[in-house]
Design a protein around this nucleic acid. Structure first.
Length: 421
RNA sequence: GUGGCUGUAGCUCAGUCGGUAGAGUCCCGGAUUGUGAUUCCGGUUGUCGCGGGUUCGAGCCCCGUCAGCCACCCCA
């Protein structure tokens, strides 16, 4: 046991039992995305560091202190992706996906951020993301939100809360930002340490402060909606009325600010009160300027990402959707070692008929082999011996039937369905 | 990055005042002369996270370190 190597902090193993749930979620997501006409895109886990610096924002925590960056052998700085949008945009530009066309894309996979691990927050975590390009109107914003609502329904998830806000155009957001800085600077002697720091890094975040003594300052602060330009205002109004029309409940939250610099106009966030401090299961918004900022045409875009670990945690608590792995049809045991070749041949025949057959390996008494058969969860055990015909024993009832090996396949298909007993 | 709590068998945990470590579970074997769930009997589980210090003696006290959990912060 000495010198044993541990996993990297905040990077977890997913054991088979958990993977069953993950696969169930992934399958549901794939199905729902397909219903809306979205197609999967895959892009690298590693990109040039510059890509993230230019898209997420130089002054954000992610870029400043959370990226896994390293020097490639040629001296170039590379980074393990901390989120998916930047890579997706880069891939789209590079492959001409945005040239005079609309794209509906999704992706899934691991992301990396060097944060202090806690519940719902890991250094390697997984996101499922959806991105839509080339559509400037509120209709596509609504489509994305309806898509998420449908996914929750399919998964059997209830009690999530949807918060909505509009950040306006970069210009109106900048106008608000400077008005807020002016106001907060005026009352800076009332701010706590955290808020003073945020004042210079991300002033909109000050409004999120949980410090009760700042309540007064925050309540009297200028509000973002007042700074919205006319177009953003109508856009946001359309999003709201259409969502209400579609029967989706939401709360307009003027303090909702996404952390990444590229967001504008509609932003939204689904949260749960059962996840502790990391409550956001799914969040996203519009990022109309990003494609151009990364060297592409002026292509409008909207997207969101789902935190897999958080979603799975919610399903573990109250979900119904856990997708059990399919049961084995048969666990095959041998009454004596000389029957091994014959058992292997029969197992292969059965697998050729799409049956799931586990062949006992490693010997042992018949008793111990049958015990393993029982614990494997298989519907039945198949006993193969050298001389006698094959015996099929139903493990739930204990009834045992002898038959020629050519009859086993039909017998299993008849008696070992996943739905019946 | 900051703070609080916690690290004992594969898993869940007990371990009193400092005197060289225990239960349940799991696994293996037997009762059952080749036939699995229960029952009964027997058996293996360990650098007490790691390193140092105090002590005649440390799982227990002290320091450091690593890891986990929760919160701050940040975000999916």
């Amino acid at each position: 046991m000495t010198g044993r190597v541990q996993a990297v902090r905040g990077m977890n193993d997913l054991l088979p039992e958990t993977v069953d749930t993950w696969q169930g979620v992934e399958r549901s997501a794939r199905e729902v995305f397909g219903q809306y006409g979205y197609r999967e895109i895959r892009f690298p886990l590693v990109e040039k560091t510059e890509l993230y610096a230019r898209s997420i924002g130089e002054a954000t925590d992610i870029v400043e202190k959370e990226m896994y960056s390293f020097q490639d052998r040629n001296g170039e700085s590379l980074t393990l992706r901390p989120e998916g949008t930047a890579g997706c945009v880069r891939a789209g530009i590079e492959n001409g996906l945005f040239y005079n066309q609309v794209q509906r894309l999704w992706y899934a996979g691991p992301m990396f951020r060097h944060e202090r691990p806690q519940k719902g927050r890991y250094r390697q975590f997984h996101q499922i993301g959806v991105e839509a390009y080339g559509m400037p109107g509120p209709d596509i914003d609504i489509e994305l939100i309806l898509l998420t609502a449908r996914l929750w329904r399919v998964l059997g998830l209830k009690g999530l809360r949807l918060d909505l806000n509009s950040l306006g155009t970069p210009e109106s957001r900048a106008g608000y930002r400077s008005a807020l800085i002016d106001y907060l600077s005026m009352r800076r002697h009332e701010l706590d340490e955290d808020s003073l720091r945020r004042l210079s890094t991300n002033p909109l975040r000050v409004l999120d402060s949980k410090n009760p003594s700042l309540r007064d300052v925050i309540e009297q602060a200028p509000e973002l909606p007042a700074f919205l330009d006319e177009e953003s205002r109508t856009h946001f109004a359309a999003v709201q009325s259409c969502l209400a029309d579609a029967g989706v409940k939401f709360v307009v939250n003027p303090r909702l600010v996404r952390g990444l610099d590229y967001y504008n106009r509609t932003v939204f966030e689904w949260t749960s009160d059962r996840l502790g401090a990391q409550a956001a299961v799914c969040a996203g918004g519009r990022y109309d300027g990003l494609v151009q900022q990364l060297g592409g045409d002026d292509v409008p875009a909207v997207g969101f990402a789902i935190g897999m670990e958080r979603l799975v945690e919610l399903l573990r608590v109250d979900g119904e959707a856990a997708d059990a792995h399919p049961r084995l049809h048969a666990y095959m045991v041998t009454a004596d070692p000389s029957a091994t070749c014959s058992a292997i041949r029969l197992a292969e025949e059965l697998r050729g008929r799409s049956l799931r057959v586990l062949l006992h390996c490693g010997g042992g008494s018949l008793k111990s082999q049958l015990r393993r058969a029982d614990r494997s969860g298989a519907h039945c055990a198949i006993l193969v011996s050298k001389e006698m015909p094959v015996a099929v024993k139903m493990l739930a009832t204990g009834t045992q039937t002898e038959m020629e090996r050519s009859a086993v396949g039909d017998y299993l298909q008849l008696h070992c369905s996943d739905h019946g007993s």
